[in-house]
Design a protein around this nucleic acid. Structure first.
Length: 285
DNA sequence: CTGCACGCCTGCCCGC
DNA sequence: TGCGGGCAGGCGTGCA
């Protein structure tokens, strides 16, 4: 489910349920997700109070009352399903009154006030880890991450300098989490369309005016998507059951053959480093 | 160092 | 109806 706007939406949904509450019981149904879960994972979470929930890049950061942090990444197909008394609040199609568990419900957190948060991830590209709060930014998976795109420090000058001399296509560059975090395949396509930049343009040649337009496009598209509650694809459901609706605002993503909303030329699809890119060959240069 | 293909998984959709 | 191929919001690894 996740690019930055979806993770941000999940974060907000989880915060309402978890912050200020203790994890009275934790179910762990697998030893590993993408990576092995740490030893005594469920045991170490049990009894902890969730102090706050943050986001870094596409990682959820649950701050616990013992100075530890629960890091979660949703991968491609991970979801957090919030339920009460074993029933979905809405639309949680696999949480029936019977209490039957879905085959991909890997971790279930039960709070001290009768709510559950279920991490469900069919493809298991997601991850969870426990790390001390102090050491979090030195975590192997976090230490090379680039700037947050919505931070003020991420501006045209910063982007231009990050791209300078890069010989990869700009589409690949903005997907690279070492350059800037949070932008995934959908929002990369959408941001490049907004900025009228071809996904094939050499990253190093996105400078000056183009870098300015791209920074604005990235920030605008992410902010608009957050406001819409993220994008809901293939019937996936957000944390509390509400559906994000930004997918209705896609200009190019998954719209091959449809007319470009700006110039009416047909949207094209191409594959770059193994991933679909959707773009308008006429107005993106 | 850089850029890119591959693999990790399951599920769904399409064409035959 | 069944089956195979291609595709899917991510990212670490290993290769040239």
């Amino acid at each position: 489910m996740p690019e930055l706007p979806e993770v941000e939406t999940v974060k907000n949904g989880l915060a309402r349920t978890l912050v200020g509450h203790r994890l009275a019981r934790v179910e762990q149904h697998r030893a590993d997700l993408r990576f092995p879960l740490p030893p005594d994972f469920a045991k170490r979470l049990t009894g902890r109070r969730v102090e706050a929930i943050d986001r870094r890049a596409k990682y959820l950061v649950l701050r616990l009352d013992d100075g530890m942090v629960l890091l979660c990444h949703l991968g491609m197909s991970g979801r957090m399903v919030v339920t009460k008394s074993g029933k979905a609040t809405k639309l949680g199609e696999f949480h029936h009154d019977t209490g039957l568990r879905d085959a991909h419900d890997h971790i279930v957190l039960h709070t001290d006030h009768g709510w559950t948060v279920t991490f469900n991830d069919p493809r298991r590209f997601g991850m969870m880890d426990l790390v001390s709060s102090n050491a979090m930014h030195e975590h192997k998976l976090l230490k090379h991450l680039g700037p947050e795109p919505l931070d003020a420090v991420f501006d045209a000058a910063r982007l231009a300098s990050l791209l300078k001399g890069k010989r990869t296509p700009i589409k690949a560059a903005i997907l690279d989490q070492r350059l800037v975090v949070g932008v995934g395949n959908i929002y990369a396509c959408e941001a490049l369309h907004r900025a009228e930049i071809s996904p094939k343009r050499l990253a190093g040649k996105v400078q000056g005016e183009r870098a300015e337009k791209l920074v604005v496009a990235i920030k605008d598209v992410l902010n608009a998507a957050i406001k819409a509650g993220g994008s809901t694809l293939r019937d996936y459901v957000q944390a509390t059951g509400e559906l994000g609706y930004f997918q209705h605002s896609f200009k190019v993503y998954d719209r091959e053959g449809e007319p470009c909303p700006r110039c009416k030329a047909p949207i094209r699809r191409l594959v770059q480093s193994g991933r679909s890119t959707f773009y308008c060959a006429k107005c993106q240069r």
